[in-house]
Design a protein around this nucleic acid. Structure first.
Lengths: 141, 141
DNA sequence: ACCCAGATGCGAGCAGCTCGCACGTAGCAG
DNA sequence: CTGCTACGTGCGAGCTGCTCGCATCTGGGT
């Protein structure tokens, strides 16, 4: 079993443990999100409908919301345009270049020092995640 | 003349210097943005239409775009919902609490150290601005 | 005072969701 | 294995926050 399949299993199992029903659509959506980080909802619809054309876009939106409330996935805004979905325990933070649009993945733990510093100085605990950080990558500077 | 009126004058003058036309609508929009940071486009429409009810919402959107291209204003996303507009030289960065929604203004220069650190480690120049930083304020933690 | 590129009012259109409703099915009780 | 029912779904309408095309108007140079 691939790591992504394993992740999807965990999502599905956790959903069931929380008293939620497991449907074909939910299972397919969990698999797609686990296997493909940073897809938009519309892209997820595309992947899901390859195998399950009957799954409606609104079901995808609602399922993503359910999974997010369950703390299993999260969405992040990389710029204008649709939100991007990923597993809640995705260990990377996104740096988006305003010049070329490139997305640089950086391990979250490498921001611990910055987080500590901001927390000490401003009493504010940054939750890197909901919005990407925008700026200029080394080649665009 | 209030500082905001002065700022508005600078905006208008710079527009004209860039070969753009100065209209009643543009003047009114510049004054509203200079006097009230972090308004949404729709709120700006409201303010402008008090004195100039003929100014159409689409004019406000287009003028904000023009002012942004001229480097005079910028928009920032504080969360879901409409963008918020401010003068490009607004010296504050926004920290938005995910718990209570409070917006904490922090002088940008106080992030210089963080910026330097991230640049040294990841080769990425963070442009605090287009997205606010989300997290938890001291009272919500 | 005249001219015309550029700005505006207006309304249609679009992206990205969100919601209400009727139907269908997961999952539990028996 | 069967039946029940509340939760999930397909479907389409609706909503927010812009964006655009077009005809008309006007700022500002001559």
């Amino acid at each position: 079993m691939s790591p992504a399949q394993h992740d999807a299993e965990v999502l599905i199992r956790t959903l069931r443990e929380q008293g939620q029903r497991v449907t074909t659509g939910r299972r397919a959506i969990a698999e797609v999100v686990a296997a493909n980080p940073d897809l938009s909802a519309e892209e997820i619809v595309g992947f899901v409908q390859r195998d399950h054309p009957e799954v409606h876009p609104s079901t995808v939106y609602r399922t993503l919301e359910t999974l997010e409330e369950a703390g299993l996935v999260r969405h992040v805004h990389l710029g204008h345009g649709p939100a991007r979905w990923q597993l809640a325990d995705d260990p990377a933070h996104r740096l988006v270049c305003e010049g070329c649009g490139a997305v640089q993945l950086v391990s979250r733990v490498r921001f611990d020092e910055v987080r500590r510093q901001v927390e000490a100085e401003f009493g504010f605990a940054i939750a890197f995640g909901h919005f990407a950080m925008t700026g200029r990558c080394s080649t665009c500077r």
